[in-house]
Design a protein around this nucleic acid. Structure first.
Lengths: 153, 153
DNA sequence: GGTGAAAGTTTTTCTCT
DNA sequence: AGAGAAAAACTTTCACC
């Protein structure tokens, strides 16, 4: 997998505007449609492009609560870490799960309709997860920046 | 803005597969193409759909480091908060900036090519940001879950 | 708000350089 | 690898229910 300058620009454009047409994309990078499409397909097959997603406005859809949860486990054995991740995988409210270095083992991004349903989720789904030692939650007051993925510009 | 069951399914499909064709989308929700397209346009205009983005694989593109930074400011006055956010807005390495309740004021998601460039970024761009009292960073070891946006399923 | 058909683009394939 | 032309598919509009 070897990316040249054109590939980088294709990725930057697609990250910014995922539904751009192939002809418009080709124009922007100075190609014609066919080679442009071939490059994009190659980027998809190589795994550089994992997929495309609509970016939805959570608040408009009634999801008013975003919370970051810092979770520490009782054991950091690989089995315990995996068991926790597998439990998390079953919870739609958890949108992201990252394992961290240091004292905190995981950071989770949780999206919920309201504070009440979040608190119910916290006590009935997250705190009882396998091996959990402690969960510290911080409510997102406002988000000033959310850029997709990778700083290509 | 009033969403019915079909709108919800359209949003779920587009969140999952942002480049699905309109005819395929229409089939999946049990519509024909024209009303399906009209609904999607309405969802876009209403702001429920903010945009579409390619989901890129950071590692494949050479961005091997993801870090969460917990930032506390010296002042929580609105002016100070804004000044910090405006500084952050100029930094491409910072992909997300969320204001939190509690002792930590902001959580940032930072993406970098390697540890060295991250550390340079930290000392030259983030620690000197306006009003910063403390920055605690945690390196992401691995990510087991990243679902886009909102738990619609 | 939904349908069916028609017009205009776009995607995709093919062939050539 | 990229370009031009042609075929297939999709998007978009229109008239109608």
């Amino acid at each position: 997998m070897n990316f040249d300058e054109i590939d980088r620009r294709l990725l930057a454009e697609l990250q910014d505007e995922g539904r751009i047409t192939n002809v418009e994309l080709a124009q922007r990078v100075g190609l014609t449609a066919p080679p442009c499409l071939r490059r994009v397909r190659a980027l998809e097959e190589s795994g550089a492009i994992r997929g495309y997603h609509a970016d939805l406005d959570a608040a408009t859809l009634g999801f008013t609560i975003t919370v970051y949860a810092m979770v520490s486990l009782k054991s950091q054995a690989e089995d315990a870490l995996r068991a926790f991740e597998e439990h998390i995988a079953t919870l739609p409210a958890v949108r992201e799960c990252h394992m961290l270095n240091g004292e905190i083992d995981f950071i989770l991004k949780i999206v919920s309709k309201d504070l009440q349903s979040f608190q119910e989720f916290l006590t009935s789904r997250l705190t009882p997860a396998p091996n959990v030692a402690s969960v510290k939650t911080s409510l997102v007051i406002r988000t000033s920046k959310t850029e997709p993925g990778v700083p290509l510009e």
